[in-house]
């Protein structure tokens, strides 16, 4: 089921009666990714979630026995960082029940195009190789949790 479009962020507020900003605050400082020395400048992978690429897509996402969450991001997308922090929390909360990956839409153009990624961040949820949910934009953690629970229950 397609979720509301990105521009409904403000509209979501009506349904949230508590401040949601807090869960996005960094638990520690942003962790710089240990990059190989040849790749000095690396973009926004400020997350502990593993990267999935076009090459590993089939194996890690489509053929996974466990449901999979993939967060699409772009290199200089600020809100993507907030979503990455939520993905990190979710990866811990759902360890063993859900695999979490991130994908740089700028580097993996083909995958991004296959799934018609326009705005980022976008979080897609897969089960048995089928995309069941997509959450576009920066949503409160509860929003992602609800989508995950629907996928797990399906």
């Amino acid at each position: 089921m397609e979720r509301n479009n990105i521009h409904s962020l403000a509209g979501q507020k009506a349904r949230l009666n508590h401040r949601i900003g807090l869960s996005f605050w960094p638990k520690t400082d942003f962790r710089a990714r240990k990059a190989p020395s040849t790749l000095r400048v690396v973009c926004l992978r400020d997350t502990t979630a593993a990267a999935v690429t076009g090459k590993s897509w089939e194996k890690l996402v489509l053929n996974s026995d466990t449901p999979v969450l993939v967060g699409f991001y772009a290199s200089w997308c600020g809100p993507c960082r907030m979503v990455h922090r939520v993905i990190d929390e979710i990866a811990t909360d759902y360890a063993g029940r859900l695999k979490c990956f991130v994908l740089n839409a700028d580097s993996d153009m083909q995958v991004a195009e296959n799934y018609d990624i326009k705005a980022v961040p976008v979080v897609l949820l897969f089960k048995k190789g089928v995309k069941l949910e997509s959450v576009i934009g920066t949503m409160p953690k509860e929003f992602y949790i609800a989508a995950i629970e629907r996928v797990l229950a399906s």
């Binding site: 926004l44 290199s75 600020g78 960082r81 907030m82």
Partner: peptide, 9 residues
């Protein structure tokens, strides 16, 4: 941090 990253982008 969000603002900063977007401005840099």
């Amino acid at each position: 941090g969000v603002t900063s990253v977007v401005i840099k982008g």
